[in-house]
Amino acid sequence: MDHVWDFTSVIASRKLLLIGLLHTVELGVLCLVLGLTAGAFVGAARYSRNRWVNWPASAFVEVFRNTPALVQIIWFYFAFPILVPIDIDPFLAATLGLSLNTTAFAAEIYRGGIQSLGRGQWEAARALGMTYGQQLTRIILPQAVKRMVPAFMNRAVELMKMTSLASVIAYGELMHQAKTISTYNFNPIETYTVVALIFFALIYPLALAMQQVERRLRRSE
């Protein structure tokens, strides 16, 4: 009831928090880069007319979009090592889970962005005598990528939040450090409040930037 807020023990643990923050950013950026890159290929594969290419790509996307990210991370940590002869540490499990998850969502963004253009642009490009590759790289992608930017930024926001799931398998990101600090110092109120604020300071600017970009795009179209 009459809790006296005392942040000294949190401030004393600032080094731990800083390391956690670094790990959070590291995991987030790595999975974003991996996911957006792989997503382009999976998205293209889903576009393919060859059933042997598009069917597995679709199955991959649907599985990773329709199961919880936490289940994916835990599966890669506890279940996957049984299938492969390599050691999987928390960092690798989290990276696998989160980057594949991001791949699946990014694939859909690429696909949606390209589909949003309609046939007219393809046809106009073809009418000029462009090859398929030219149509795609000169005409379609420059327009489509612009429309995809807000969705990609939204993915980045979601991904930054999802990195906190890695704490469940004891990867030392921010949330995991918070658990450690609050257990040792018996100060969950201050610790979780501070960590929530750090996450907010990290993620909210991204969300704001996304809204800005969206607004500017809407005005320009």
Partner: peptide, 25 residues
């Protein structure tokens, strides 16, 4: 709205589960 959209739900859950009872008794 922005706060709850921009922070990880696991942090929110831990706050409500571990911190809130101490705050409110």
């Amino acid at each position: 709205v922005e706060f709850f959209r921009s922070t990880p739900p696991i942090v929110q859950l831990f706050w409500f589960f571990f911190a809130l009872p101490l705050l409110t008794g």
